[in-house]
């Protein structure tokens, strides 16, 4: 009888412990972004709005806690092991160690993970059987109308965020606004990696807006900006153009997407 009881207790304990672990690893909620047309910021003569099929997107950015699970399961992506061409020396520098965010960093367990490179973000999304969003997907999702918003416009809100310095402690995900798709913090918390961030052929000198060097431009024609007063978007595209895949930056993180089917 004692033997039976001890086994019963042990089993219950074991199950409970795993159940809790399961709760921490529970899958991130994804929302559906309905199909739409995305009007690119940089246009060429032949440009048309890009049709984006409906897709699922993480409702919020990937957090430090979630990324921790990834590096625990994938030692080659740990801070001390990672290859420099895939992540520069700032990779996860805000963490205590390879597999610890740190007790003193409790406040950021559920904040977006930052100081991660494009390659690391790519690998994480793949690990979750997802992908990084394309620019068209991300922009379509990010232009979703905010719900319960106190700002005059989304552009106002974005510019406001851009012109404020980074907070010392990055707030939790879901701490800014939610938009019509159910997505949180598409703007206002961090910059986010996109799959094809290295898309822009326009000269990095943004004043060179007239004729992109024809030599660099198979698709033909000049590249131009649709709305030069849209400073918020201008800053975001300029930011993307300065990135390299292994950069780890303290205000740059990501979220993943998945095809509907």
């Amino acid at each position: 009888m004692k033997y039976f009881l001890s086994i019963l207790i042990a089993t219950v304990f074991f199950c409970a412990a795993n159940a809790q672990k399961k709760a921490v690893l529970s899958e991130k909620k994804m929302v559906t972004v309905s199909s739409g047309n995305y009007k690119p910021f940089f246009v060429t003569k032949n440009n048309r709005p890009i049709y984006v099929a409906a897709f699922k997107m993480d409702e919020s950015a990937v957090t430090n806690a979630e990324f921790l699970q990834f590096v625990k399961a994938n030692p080659q992506w740990r801070r001390s092991k990672v290859n420099r061409i895939f992540a520069d020396t700032n990779y996860l520098r805000h963490w205590k160690s390879d597999v610890e965010i740190g007790e003193s960093n409790k406040k950021i367990y559920n904040s977006p993970v930052v100081n991660v490179s494009w390659f690391a973000a790519e690998a994480y999304c793949k690990w979750k059987n997802k992908k990084l969003p394309t620019i068209a997907q991300w922009e379509l999702a990010a232009n979703g109308a905010p719900k319960n918003f106190k700002y005059k416009s989304l552009t106002d809100f974005i510019l406001d965020w851009y012109t404020k310095p980074n907070p010392r402690i990055l707030p939790n995900v879901k701490s800014t606004y939610q938009n019509q798709y159910g997505l949180y913090d598409m703007n206002g918390l961090i910059w986010e990696w996109t799959f094809n961030f290295n898309s822009f052929i326009a000269s990095r000198d943004s004043r060179d807006k007239s004729e992109a060097d024809f030599k660099n431009f198979c698709a033909g024609g000049a590249i131009n900006v649709v709305d030069k007063t849209d400073y918020a978007t201008y800053l975001r595209f300029g930011y993307r153009a300065s990135l390299k895949g292994n950069y780890c930056i303290s205000s740059l993180g990501f979220r993943c997407v998945k095809d509907l089917k």
Partner: peptide
């Protein structure tokens, strides 16, 4: 039962293929 409750999640975590050699010599 105990094994049934165990870390089946970690298996699903490996569903996506991570290039093993992608980040290590």
């Amino acid at each position: 039962v105990a094994f049934g409750c165990s870390d089946s999640n970690s298996k699903s975590a490996f569903v996506g293929e991570v290039p093993k050699s992608a980040a290590a010599p």
